[in-house]
Simulated scan of single mutants.
Amino acid sequence: MQSGNYDPRPPEDRDATRATDSDRTSRTGRRSRRASEAKASDDGIMRRLSGRSDLDRAKAMRYEPYSYESNFTQLRWVVILLAAWSLVAIWLAWLDFSTVRVLSDLHDQGFTSVPPSTLSPQSMIDFAEREGLTCIDTSDVFMATYECNRLFDAQNIYEVVKGQSSLAFVILMALLLVNMFAFGSFTHRASRNLLTLNSSEQGFTPEKAVMWFFIPIMNLFKPWQVFRELFKGSDPEVTTSDDLAWKTTGKVSNLVHFWAGIFVLIFIYNPITIGRVWHSVRLTFTDSVVAHQRLVIADLLLALLGIAALLVVIELHKRQESRHVKVGNIIVTPPPPVDPLEEALKEGIRRKELDNRNFRRGSHDRKER
Rank of each mutant, 00 (worst) to 15 (best):
L119T: 10
N270H: 08
K352H: 06
D108F: 06
M218F: 13
V141Y: 06
T286A: 15
M124A: 10
F152H: 07
K222Y: 08
F169E: 13
R14E: 03
T99Y: 15
M1F: 06
T273D: 05
W94E: 13
G233A: 05
N358T: 04
F72N: 13
Y6C: 02
G29D: 05
L87I: 13
D235H: 07
A308Q: 03
V312F: 11
R27F: 07
D96W: 06
S288D: 15
M173G: 07
M218P: 02
F267W: 10
D235Q: 06
E368V: 06
F221T: 04
R47A: 14
F214K: 05
V114D: 01
I268Y: 09
F181G: 15
M180C: 14
A174W: 08
P121I: 08
N219M: 00
Q2N: 08
F183M: 13
R357G: 04
R323W: 01
D242N: 10
W94Y: 14
S117L: 06
E237G: 05
L304S: 13
A168T: 05
L82F: 01
L305R: 07
I136A: 04
Q2L: 11
V160A: 14
L92C: 13
R357K: 09
V170I: 15
K247W: 00
P334D: 04
T118R: 12
A58C: 01
A182D: 09
N149D: 12
Q225R: 13
L354G: 00
P11D: 06
L175V: 07
S70E: 12
V226K: 03
V290L: 15
K162V: 15
P236H: 05
R18F: 09
E201Y: 09
F152G: 00
A209S: 04
R366W: 14
I136C: 03
Q74Y: 06
G44Y: 00
L55I: 11
E368R: 06
L151N: 00
H257S: 14
E159N: 12
S41V: 11
F72E: 14
P336H: 15
E229A: 03
S165C: 05
T240S: 09
E147C: 05
K208M: 14
T196M: 09
T118I: 12
G348V: 02
H107K: 14
T145E: 10
G250T: 02
V338S: 04
N219I: 00
D140I: 04
T284D: 04
K222D: 00
P340M: 01
R189A: 02
S280H: 12
E321P: 05
R52F: 10
L354I: 00
L345D: 08
Y146A: 14
I274C: 08
V312T: 11
V327W: 08
T134S: 14
K352V: 03
T134I: 10
S363Q: 13
N198C: 08
S98G: 15
R18K: 13
T286G: 10
